[in-house]
Design a protein around this nucleic acid. Structure first.
Lengths: 224, 224
DNA sequence: AATAAATAATAGTATTACTATCATTTATAA
DNA sequence: TTATAAATGATAGTAATACTATTATTTATT
């Protein structure tokens, strides 16, 4: 029997559970490909339906609208990242090594194929970088939050925050630093690839530079 | 004669310069109000035209589409912030005090009415927090960048980066830290107001907490 | 007073984000 | 097996949106 990760998703995000049918899984799989390829603004349910070989109505039976589908996909990734962190740092005793590993995981710089999955994580990571903040930068963020849409994100922030606490119990802002770390990992990745003149990273071994920057940022803040 | 700040805007952002006519200035003014009120996704040129008392065609003579209008508004704010920083830190000799003042300015925690302006900066600040990253999180960010749309943003990052350098010439990542500082100031402001459980700031004197967090983040990183 | 530029008024189009309906296939249960 | 329900496919339709085009009118410039 294969090991499969089950990420628990908020029920109100979907009309029909996409994990439970072939069509549902296809919706997720092709959404990831299309959103990554065209960007969220140009992502249309009609194109999605065509690429799957179904109709618009078929998609709408699973997701009310494309924003919920985006939130679903992104939440799935947060849940999956949270799981990865728990799984991969499981044997690491030293909290500082643990936090360093977390930074690597957040920059997508570690082998995640330890656990097989039916989604393409590297595409998902790119979606996170380019579209992630659109999931909460809306006027209805409050209602979405009440519906627990951001629970996986908050759980992840909490997990990272707890590791930060382990490193230095005296540090005042573990959760703020955790959310900063998560977002800045994506932000700098976006900048380095799309607005390179904004940072002064040289363009060789980009990911390593981001990790170096983040390590410096986090560990000097918590004085380790 | 009144002192008026002129922020230099990239010409390719508009079709007709909105600074040069009453209608143009109205477009900017009402856009700011509408975007802040309804969010960018629900912001429609038709509603904008109605609120000004003109027609859709009138708006389209100034801006090709609503994304360019957003970029215009946001760029204006970056340019204005950059100017504020130059102006307000002008007499400050000590680079550390200077950087502290920059952090205050970025968190909107300082009196900016020193210089009069026909736009409402506090509305603009809210737009920046909620919509700012949408200006570059697109598939056409590369072309937009080639058109110099992000020059004011980069200039601001550069100004802040230079002040960071003044504080510690040895610090390796002044520009990355500058962009991080600018974005995190907005991010934490958004979180504290919209997803409060994500940070562990208590809800009193929110802005002060953000400043404290940012000061800690920046000054420990550059070891001052 | 003549000319050009800017604006207003109106209409039109292709696309989009859905909703509704009904027929057909597939799974489940008696 | 048959009856029943659930999921899917096929098709059509609608209101709203993001524009473009055209012509008339007002305002500014020479």
């Amino acid at each position: 029997m294969k090991l499969a990760v089950q990420i628990k998703m908020t029920k109100s995000l979907y009309l029909r559970d996409p994990e439970q049918s072939e069509l549902g899984r296809n919706i997720i799989k092709h959404s990831i490909q299309l959103i990554q390829k065209t960007g969220f603004e140009s992502f249309k349910f009609k194109k999605l339906a065509e690429s799957i070989g179904t109709t618009e109505a078929g998609i709408y039976r699973y997701f009310e609208n494309k924003h919920k589908l985006l939130v679903y996909i992104i939440s799935w990734y947060w849940g999956w990242l949270d799981f990865q962190i728990g799984y991969q740092t499981n044997n690491v005793k030293d909290p500082i090594s643990k936090l360093k590993l977390v930074i690597k995981i957040l920059t997508n710089n570690v082998n995640k194929d330890l656990i097989p999955s039916h989604v393409d994580e590297s595409l998902l990571h790119q979606i996170l970088i380019a579209e992630g903040s659109k999931s909460y930068l809306t006027k209805h963020v409050g209602e979405d939050n009440n519906q627990q849409y951001f629970k996986p994100y908050k759980d992840l922030c909490n997990s990272v925050g707890e590791i930060i606490k382990e490193c230095n119990t005296q540090y005042q802002f573990p959760h703020a630093l955790a959310s900063t770390l998560i977002e800045v990992a994506h932000l700098q990745n976006f900048f380095i690839h799309n607005l390179p003149t904004i940072t002064n990273f040289d363009q060789t071994k980009k990911e390593d530079k981001i990790i170096e920057f983040l390590n410096n940022l986090v560990f000097s803040s918590i004085k380790c």
